[in-house]
Simulated scan of single mutants.
Amino acid sequence: MSNSNLFKGSLSTIVLKLLKEEGRMYGYEITQKVKDATKGKFKITEGALYPTLHKLEADGILEVEVEKVDNRLRKYYRLTEKGTTETAKKISELEEYIKTLQEVIFLKPKIG
């Protein structure tokens, strides 16, 4: 399931939701949090995560803080004010999509 198109289409919403809850995170931390939370069902690759983070940053949804940790520079991502608004919007859209999808999947056949 880790490479499914459904998951890829939800990646930015997942990242935004995590950042809303955690405040700030670095890339590897995001991948591990998703892996742990889904008991390994969803695995975010660097090839999927970093382009998503860079696009969200370019769109003004995320800001980056660079810190030196163990003699290495680490980029921490956090939501901007615009990002907070966008996160609420994306979560609402995803919830509505899931609700509609469930209605279609569990559609009961008409009798008569």
Rank of each mutant, 00 (worst) to 15 (best):
S2F: 04
S4P: 00
S4I: 06
F7S: 15
F7M: 15
K8V: 06
K8R: 10
K8H: 07
G9Y: 00
G9H: 02
L11V: 08
L11P: 02
S12V: 05
S12P: 00
T13N: 04
I14Y: 03
V15D: 00
L16V: 04
L16C: 09
L16N: 05
L16I: 06
L16H: 04
K17H: 05
K17D: 08
L18H: 01
L18W: 02
L18D: 02
L19Y: 03
K20Q: 10
K20W: 07
E21M: 10
E22L: 04
G23Y: 00
G23M: 03
R24T: 13
R24E: 15
R24V: 12
E29H: 12
E29V: 05
I30V: 12
I30W: 00
T31V: 12
K33C: 14
K33F: 11
V34M: 03
V34N: 00
V34K: 00
K35M: 07
D36I: 03
A37S: 13
T38V: 01
T38M: 02
T38N: 00
K39R: 14
K39V: 12
K39C: 09
G40M: 08
G40N: 06
K41Y: 07
F42H: 05
K43E: 14
I44C: 03
T45Y: 08
G47N: 13
A48C: 10
A48S: 14
L49M: 08
L49F: 07
P51S: 09
P51Y: 05
T52V: 11
T52G: 06
L53M: 08
L53G: 04
K55H: 12
K55M: 13
A58V: 08
A58F: 07
G60A: 09
I61M: 07
I61F: 07
I61H: 04
L62V: 02
V64G: 05
E67P: 05
V69L: 11
V69M: 03
N71E: 15
R74N: 09
Y76D: 00
Y77V: 06
Y77A: 11
R78H: 07
L79R: 03
T80A: 08
T80W: 04
T80P: 03
E81S: 13
K82P: 03
T85D: 14
T85N: 14
E86W: 04
K90R: 15
K90Y: 04
I91P: 06
E93W: 05
L94F: 03
E95L: 15
E95W: 08
E96G: 12
E96N: 13
E96H: 14
I98W: 05
K99A: 10
K99R: 14
K99S: 06
T100W: 08
E103K: 11
V104Q: 06
V104Y: 04
I105N: 05
F106Q: 08
K110I: 12
K110Y: 08
I111G: 11
I111K: 12
I111P: 08
